[in-house]
């Protein structure tokens, strides 16, 4: 069965790119969120297998959202989406429990390689 992914990013454009990558890779994008608060709500509601999480977002940033999601489910798999130059924040997110990260602009093969590794499919 195709794995379910929740895509979190405040940019619709970026969400679309990521959604397309997942669709092409055989994943089901079961939901998307544009900020950290929404991300936590959607996670509780949809129970995805994996979340891709933008770092910098309004209302609640990706690190806080990750922390909150992991409080809800300590086995949750959250992969951060970051830009170059955000190394420190990514490491903070990893401290908070994120399992991996992808770097924007996302390249299909990188994203799928990371996600498959995390899901133990590679």
């Amino acid at each position: 069965m195709a794995k379910k992914v929740l895509v979190v990013d405040d940019s619709v454009f970026m969400r679309d790119i990521i959604k397309d990558i997942f669709a092409a890779g055989g994943f089901t994008v079961i939901g998307e969120a544009g900020n950290g608060v929404e991300a936590v709500e959607k996670f509780k509601e949809l129970k995805p297998d994996l979340v891709t999480m933008d770092l910098v977002m309004p209302y609640r940033n990706g690190i806080d959202a990750t922390r909150e999601i992991l409080r809800t489910d300590n086995k949750a798999l959250v992969v951060m989406c970051s830009a170059l130059g955000q190394e420190t924040m990514v490491m903070e997110a990893i401290e908070a429990g994120a399992v991996d990260f992808i770097v924007k602009p996302p390249r299909a093969e990188d994203v799928l390689a990371v996600v498959k590794k995390v899901l133990g499919e590679a």
């Binding site: 170059l84 990514v90 990893i94 401290e95 990188d110």
Partner: peptide
């Protein structure tokens, strides 16, 4: 890899 430092940190964690 992108951000090898973060990669290494991730492996460590």
């Amino acid at each position: 890899s992108n951000q090898p430092g973060v990669r290494g940190f991730l492996a460590y964690k």
